[in-house]
Each structure stands twice: as structure tokens, then as C-alpha cells.
Design a protein around this nucleic acid. Sequence first.
DNA 1: CCAAAAGTGTTTCTCATACACCCATGT
DNA 2: ACATGGGTGTATGAGAAACACTTTTGG
Lengths: 247, 247
Amino acid sequence: MTHTELSPARRISDNGISVDCVIFGFDGERLNVLLLRRTGEIGGISFDDMKLPGSPIYQDEDLDEAAHRVLKELTGLSNVYLSQFKAFGSKTRTENPRDVIWLEKESGIKVDRRMVTVAYIALLKIGRSISRELNGSRAIWVPLGTEGSLAFDHNQILTESISQIRRMVALSPDCIFDLLPRKFTISQLRKLYETILQEKIDAGNFYKKLSVMPYVVPLDEKETGTPHRAARLYRFDRVIYRKNHSE
Amino acid sequence: MTHTELSPARRISDNGISVDCVIFGFDGERLNVLLLRRTGEIGGISFDDMKLPGSPIYQDEDLDEAAHRVLKELTGLSNVYLSQFKAFGSKTRTENPRDVIWLEKESGIKVDRRMVTVAYIALLKIGRSISRELNGSRAIWVPLGTEGSLAFDHNQILTESISQIRRMVALSPDCIFDLLPRKFTISQLRKLYETILQEKIDAGNFYKKLSVMPYVVPLDEKETGTPHRAARLYRFDRVIYRKNHSE
DNA sequence: CCAAAAGTGTTTCTCATACACCCATGT
DNA sequence: ACATGGGTGTATGAGAAACACTTTTGG
């Protein structure tokens, strides 16, 4: 552990490891991913595509810290659901010249070997504050399915992260509430389930199932501005949830 | 099993990434982990402890290949359930002098920074063939809970991998059959469930539940040498299982 | 015969599903 | 009034759990 020529407090590690964040947001209709526009030039021909937000890890931070940093720098948010889900280390994942050139220019690292990346999933609410933060950055919310061809193996990472979300929801449904605003209607929750599970859910049965859950707390407020009967608003109570799921 | 002499075709990558395998086996009573004895010397004082089998990754293999290699070199087995479950990259995980010295001696790599490891879970049958293979190596089956203090952060990895197995069994129960011999009794299966889930299961109900599953196929054979009524043997049919779980 | 585990039957309860139907509200 | 979604009631069936019971086998 020689720290002799460590410049400032932080320096980028050159150990070929990065983190990438698959940041999901729900707009009421569809799941969206937060992607970064990437531009560059290779052989006189410029390119313009998208990638998952990510970064090489610093030597003085662990993996989770690196992922939180990426998220914080991009969105300004700290208290966000974020969990590691898989490491990607295909032999060819950093071989595309376009990717290599972009990476070297962006990070200042010489990319002379395969990089391994640890992918994270973040779930957050698409709201005004986050949109304001994103203004002027190169980040865009992209609806799932319309993302096109991404940099590196990011299409694969994205695909696998969606299966991962399905597993997560099946295993501990509480994470779904991270995608909803604090106050939400049963319909919004149902539509979110439907988009994640990719199947229709009977509205009546869903309503009853939810009304039995003690941690989905009805409020004395109603929706406004609907073209039909206003729905009651609910909130998710994490404390009650944990009490029921710790045993 | 030492990595001191490297063939020229392959070379160890020096990018600070390794794989570790948590290899589980069921002996009929308890879950066991396959650990490697590790000896060395530091400051004139010798030490003797245990670690998970693992290896730095080569530059010409991906993560999964590295994990399979570790497993193959240790057990001689190729067709084994093996799945990545988490990357570990704590800032301090390769700081213990004992670990650093051992690692440098073993791998020939200068360890001047934190290593990141990708942990894998393997499930296999403890059988005669595997025991023979292990004979003379430094590997031992250690019952869960008796492993003591391990190298690096391997205690943490082991702990988390047990939770992971519980999740895996809940999500796709087929993986449990990788821990059992090809022919097994319902009792053996139940005991395995009980050790993994850490709870008693009613024998009668369990029997009925299993007898309804089309992919647990009864054989025309019975146990021998029991001090009580001989139980029927069953086998797991993966083809039927997939047919029922692909929809 | 007895102990111990294999294997069976019965009952109860919870929960998912299907589906019919009434309610409230904006246009 | 009527369309649209909010919210309720009812019936059915599958499966989990509790538990008593019979069967088979070795000692």
C-alpha cells in the first residue's frame, strides 16, 4: 500500500473497474431510464449516441460510494434507492474503438485492457426538482424500449436490470414505492405494477388487496383535475412495512 | 493449485479484480462450504487459517470463465450450478498485512491497492468422486457455522451468500436439487429445505406438496439400511420443471 | 411388540381470481 | 345523461397449515 505519489485526496483508480447506474423513473405511464448523451469523433467521423451514467471508481471509495457519487453528481439526490445487481466483465466489452476512444478522452485513463463494471439499479420519482437539476446536463429520461443502441454493453445491462427489477418487486414489493410520488392513487400503483410485470391486473381485486395492507395508508385527500371521479390518495409507510416483514 | 508459474498464453490481469467461489455441499445433515487452508508467515510468526477458493482473473477470460476455472481446478467438475451473486469492494478489504503478503506470494502480483472481488455461489453434491478429487489438496468441507475467522472479508461474503441462497430457493426452487444426489428421498429434500430456511417443516404436508409436483419423479427404488421403514427414492426432472415454469 | 419414520386423510383458513355491479364526477 | 374510472360484494377454487391417523420396517 504505497501512497507516495497520490496527488490530491482523490484520484481515479486505474484498476479497470467502473460502476454504471441504471436509473429508473416512472412517469405515470411508462418506465423511463436516465441516459447520458455521448458525442465524439473517430477517424474524422463524429458519433452521437447514449450511455448509462457511470464512472471509474476512485481508490479511496468503495463500490457503493462510487455508485452514490455518480447518482449524486447527475441528479443532486442522495436519499435514493440504490442497489448493486451484477458485475459485467465480458472479454469484449471494452473493445469497440468508439468506446475506447471516448473512455480514454473522458477519464484520462489509458484503456489497454478489458474494463469490468459493476452495475447498480436506482429507483426514483420523476419530479420537478429532478427535472430542474437535469436541465442543462446531457441527461435525458428515455422511455423503456425506445433507447436504441447504447454504448459498451449497456443494452445488455439495461435488459438484465429490468429482469432484476421484476425479481426485486417479487421479493420485496416495498421498492416499488420508490418509483411513485409520496402521495399516489391505487391506479397509479397498479399501472406501475402492470408496466413492470407486463401483464394486466384486475382493478377491483388490486384495490381490495391494497386496502388490506396496513402499510398503504389512505389519506384524506383526493386527486384533482381528473376527467372522472377523483381517486383517494395514499402514502407508503415504511415503518409499518418493516414491522410486518421483519419476522 | 498455486499460480506461481504462469503459462505465457495466459497471464494474470493486474487490474485488481478477482473471483471467489462459495461452494456449498449438503451432507444429509448440514450445509458445508468448501474452504482452502492457507498458511504463511509474517514477521517471523506463522499463521494458518482458511479462505474461500478464488483467483485473480486473467485478461483473456471473462468473470464467469474465471469462476468456472477456479471450480474446475479445485473439484475437477465442470457441470455445476454456478452463479454470480455480488461484487465486494470495501476500501479496506485488502489491507490486512497477512492478506497482502499471502496474496503477493501466491499470485505474484504487487498488491498496492484495494482489490475488488466478484463472488460466485456454486451448489454441488458431496459425493465419492469429489471427495477423491479433494484428497491431497488443501480443500476441506466445513459445516456452516464452524468456519471461524476467514481471510479477507470472506466471512462477510459467506454470510451474504447464505441469504442469497435463501432468495434463490424462494425464487426458483430447482436450484436446491443441485445439492442433492440424483436419487433422493423426500426426507432428505425436506431436511435440506429446513437447513436452508432455518425452520421446521411439517413432514406430512411436505410429502403431499411434493407428490403433486410433476417434476419430482418417483422411482421404483427404495432406501436401504435404514433403522425404520424404507423411503421411496425420487429424482428431479429438469425438463418437466422448465416446461412448467417457462410460461 | 415397539420405536421411528413413511405416507394418508380431513379440516380449516387465507388468498387469488373472475366478474357483476354500484358510485362519483367532469363534460 | 353518459362515459369513465373509483370502489364494493360475492362466489369459487387452489393451496398452505394443523394435526390425527395408518403403514411399514428394523431392532
